[in-house]
């Protein structure tokens, strides 16, 4: 897959939907393209996070530590982004990401992503908008959850 294909893939990631193609090309160019074999770890829960992963091809299991050992809580598919929380705010990885089958991943390092945001303010705005939407949805979910909890 070449840069242009990667840009297409990036465009399908919700976080980057509104950003124009040249900037996505730059983002793709400065990111590292990595292949992962089945069972290889992209990151582990609790460690310092320094990059986000964009799944170009394949799928990954999200696992968290529980008293009974690691447990898969979700699976992410093509065009999803994982680990973006770690590159926007300094928190340890909240989950472990393991490749489920062969995977093709674009790795964006934290420094580069932040530099890019600094370079193109409208890009930060777009990211902000997406995150705000997500927050809004979470709040709604929470309200719904709360009201249903009160009812019961």
């Amino acid at each position: 897959m070449t840069l242009d294909a990667e840009v297409d893939a990036l465009r399908r990631v919700p976080l980057f939907r509104g950003i124009d193609a040249t900037k996505l090309r730059l983002l793709a160019f400065i990111s590292e393209r990595t292949r992962f074999a089945d069972g290889e770890r992209l990151c582990s829960q609790g460690e310092e996070g320094d990059s986000a992963f964009i799944i170009l091809d394949g799928a990954a299991d999200i696992r968290v530590n529980t008293p009974d050992g690691e447990k898969t809580v979700a699976q992410l598919g093509q065009y999803s982004i994982v680990g973006e929380i770690a590159i926007l705010c300094d928190v340890p990885r909240t989950a472990t990401v393991v490749a489920a089958g062969e995977m093709d991943v674009l790795t964006v390092s934290k420094d580069d992503f932040l530099r890019l945001l600094k370079e193109f303010p409208d890009m930060s705005l777009e990211v902000m908008r997406t995150l705000a939407q997500r927050l809004e949805r979470t709040t709604q979910d929470l309200v719904a959850l709360k009201s249903s909890a009160e009812k019961s």
Binding site: R25, L26, D112
Partner: peptide
């Protein structure tokens, strides 16, 4: 052509150009 397109609008200080 690609490099010019990608980096033409990047400021000197960002370091992106030098690194990548």
């Amino acid at each position: 052509e690609t490099m010019v397109e990608l980096f033409a609008n990047i400021s000197d200080g960002s370091g992106l150009l030098g690194d990548y």
